[in-house]
Each structure stands twice: as structure tokens, then as C-alpha cells.
Amino acid sequence: MSLLSINGLSVKFKQRHEDLVALHNVSLSLERGERLAIVGESGAGKSLLGYAIVNLLMKPGFIAEGSIKLDDRELTRLSSKQWQEIRGKKIAMIFQDPMVTLNPVLSVGDQMVEAIRSHTRINYNDAKKLAIEKLAHVRIAAPAQRFDQYPHELSGGMRQRVIIAIALLLAPEIIIADEPTTALDVTIQAEILQLLKQICADNGVALILITHDFGVVSRIAERTLVMYAGRIVEQGPTLEIINDPQHPYTQGLLNALPQMALPGQRLNQIQGNMPPLNDQPRGCAFHPRCPYAEDKCRIQPPDFIFSGVSTVACYAIEDMLQAFEPLSEEDADD
């Protein structure tokens, strides 16, 4: 049984006439202690998926269909009180920009202690002790002094460490990190990633890392899931996906990495832009930008198939597999 399993999740934005679909039929599972990366361009819906898991969608977004199960407990039907018990305690979050994530008028200590005391009956002094311990755990120097400081007195990297420490306070089962290093200096990014990876490994916490950067993915995640226009297009072991991408979009993303271009060559961009929510193409959402697009891509979206490397939604892969290996349909049903 998976720790977290999401089935057929759809997220929509309420509109006056017809609701806009932001996430289409997303399914995924996460094992205990596993590190999963969700990759895609901005607007692919990866952050939205992260917020949907903890029911923090901003209005007018809402979960229209599907189920989210944590330890076999259905989350989508919880009351707001029950949600509050899950957030922070079972599933912790790390946001993108540490400069705006901590409340500017509350001290670091206040923001840590309140997180502890919202979930456990524990007196202030013990909570403070725990908080300082966790600050030390994320390798913050002079944790007792930091405890009394305000966010503006800390650097960006330091604040992100504080946020990681807050995530660890209640020994959660899952940490969802939404672009945790994007807003930081390049020199600090590697440190924070390493810290995050190590802390998850040490404490047996599962990690969902949301990012647009394959460089980050390769360093951390065991498994990777690629999203495009609110849909999952490919998922599989990180190494396989990086070394042998199947979906044309994944190939395009990897080709666009600066290190993939030869010196003096132009960067390989994917032509065109992601379609806006109110103007989604029929069929496969990627077909307007896809070099292999055929007629059937424009009519009906493809189903997932197992390519032998990863699970992919693409007719081109399907055709190729059928041509070479007629028996592959059985695998696809798995």
C-alpha cells in the first residue's frame, strides 16, 4: 500500500459560464521515504497539484473529481478541522520564496512554537527546546539566538533552512517542496538541496519536489513525473527518464537544457508556448508543439502505456511499440 495515492484527480477553476480545467485526471502514488520530482514548465499545473494535495487551492480553484488517499484515508472529504490536523503534521510544505514565506511581524521562534503547539499538547519551554534542536539540525549556527530573531534579520538561505526546520518539527510523513531553491543564489542552491535530501533520507520522510529544473531533479529524486498543461505525460525512474526520455515533451525539455547544446550552437527551445487554460487544444495537449504530431493526436488524447522505460501518454510511442513488439499491449494494462 502506498503512503500517498492520487487517483483521477481533476482541479477546476470556477468561472461564470464554464469552469476551466486546470488538472486533468492526474494519478500518482508515493511510497514511504520515496523522493519524487514533478517537472514541467511554469503553468504546467505542478504547483497546483502540490496545493491540491493539502487542500490549499486558492479560490476559485477547487477539486472537481478524484481521490487523494494518505495511508488509505480519503482526504478529499475531510472537514477543515481535520485538514488542519493533517497539514504541518502529516504533510509539511516548503514554499518557493523564503523571503515572503515567513510572517514578517512574528519572530522565528513564534512561528516555530505555534506550529508545534497547534498539533501537540506541549508546553512552551519544551516546544522551544524542540525548535532550537531542529534549527541546529538544519545546521543553523547559534540556533538559540536565531530563535528570537525576526525573518528580516536572516538571509534568504538562512530563512529557507528555518522553513525546512519548521517542516521537520512534527516529523511529517511527506514534505512537499515547491521550487525550494529557485529564489536562492546559485551558490546556496546546492547546499539547500543537499540538506533537503539528507534530512529526508535520515528521517525516512517522503519528498515531493516540484521544479522546472532537471538539474535539480537528477540530484535528488528517485522517481520523476513530467507534467504538461495540467496532465501527467510521462513518469518513471529519474535515471531512465533523463537518459532515455520517451515523450516528445520530455525530450524537448531535456534538449533545452543549456548543457545539452554544443558550444556555439543555439539552445534547443521547444517551439511555441503552453496553451492557456481557456484555449486547450483537442486531443493530445502537446500536439501543436510536437514534431511528431499526426491526425489522431488532434482528435483523442492518448492513454498511458508502459514503454519498457517509463509510463508515457503518446501515440508515437504507442505506434513504435506496436510495430516492434506486438505483445506490449498486455504491459500497458498494468
Binding site: 488542519q84 497539514r87 504541518g88 503534521k89 510544505m93 515572503v100 515567513l102 510572517n103 497547534s118
Partner: peptide, 23 residues
């Protein structure tokens, strides 16, 4: 963002409104 983060920490609604936001 910091209010959204406070929700993500599982803080109670009254505390978010009257401590985090009102201040």
C-alpha cells in the same frame, strides 16, 4: 504567501486571522 504558509503549517483559523493577518 506567509498566510498561505501559515495554513500549510496547520495553524488554526482564528490564530491566522487575528495574529498572523491582523498584525
Amino acid at each position: 504567501d506567509y498566510i498561505r504558509y501559515a495554513w500549510a503549517k496547520g495553524i488554526s483559523a482564528p490564530r491566522i486571522y487575528f495574529i498572523h493577518a491582523l498584525k
